[in-house]
């Protein structure tokens, strides 16, 4: 009896150990988010926000004759394109559309709970998201060359980064997935310093940032 019990214990231990090993190898904190959730909304809206940033960076790279600016814009265009690819990949795996429906930023509900109503989402908008350039501004950027293009690109991109900040902060704090929280937080840290860096680059070219204050999500 003792031998049988010992054998059973060994077998159970092996089963448990294997299960634990397999469980933890799959245990990456993944939650498949629903439509309208923080994760879904962040990915869908940040893709749109990023795509305009990529376009502006491409324009800056091909219209500049300053190697420093060309490298900077190349870095930004490539990095944000790769980030768009990651977010598109999540949406495919989550079975959600790349393009969201309804208002942008409606997922940023005050207090971190999703009530489904835009009354709780003070930054929700059906138009351009904060910091994004208008068609008129994009046309102007397309028309400029050399240092004029460099300066205007930096001005638009500083505002673009600042406008995207609340989304990154909100996703960094409220996403259900560790992967998404980390992604948003890393992006926020990098872009915050890029704003400083681009402000320095503007100053070196005798110019200043546009007059702009990013929207602040009210506490609640």
């Amino acid at each position: 009896m003792v031998a049988l019990a010992a054998l059973a214990a060994v077998v159970l231990l092996a089963i448990g150990g294997t299960a634990g090993y397999l469980l933890s190898s799959n245990r990456s904190g993944q939650v498949v988010p629903a439509s309208g959730s923080v994760d879904a909304g962040f990915a869908q809206d940040m893709i749109v926000h990023h795509r305009q940033g990529v376009l502006m960076a491409h324009l800056a790279e091909i219209h500049s004759d300053d190697p420093e600016m060309q490298r900077y814009a190349y870095d930004m265009a490539h990095t944000q394109t790769a980030q768009v690819g990651q977010m598109e990949g999540w949406l495919v795996l989550w079975g959600l559309p790349e393009i969201g429906v309804g208002a942008h930023m409606a997922w940023m509900t005050v207090g971190g709970h999703q009530h489904g109503g835009s009354a709780d989402a003070p930054l929700a908008t059906t138009g351009l998201m904060p910091g994004m350039a208008t068609d008129k501004e994009l046309s102007r950027l397309e028309s400029l060359r050399g240092k004029d293009s460099d300066v205007y690109f930096l001005q638009l991109m500083i505002r673009h980064h600042e406008g995207g900040t609340p989304m990154m902060q909100y996703a960094g704090a409220h996403s259900a997935n560790q992967v998404v929280r980390n992604f948003a937080a890393q992006m926020l840290t990098t872009q915050s310093t890029e704003v400083t860096d681009m402000t320095n680059m503007l100053a070196a070219r005798g110019a200043k940032p546009l007059d702009y204050t990013a929207p602040i999500l009210p506490g609640g």
Partner: peptide, 13 residues
């Protein structure tokens, strides 16, 4: 015993 096994498995990994 099962719980002990799971714990060991997780730690090993």
């Amino acid at each position: 015993v099962l719980a002990l096994g799971v714990t060991i498995g997780v730690v090993v990994l």
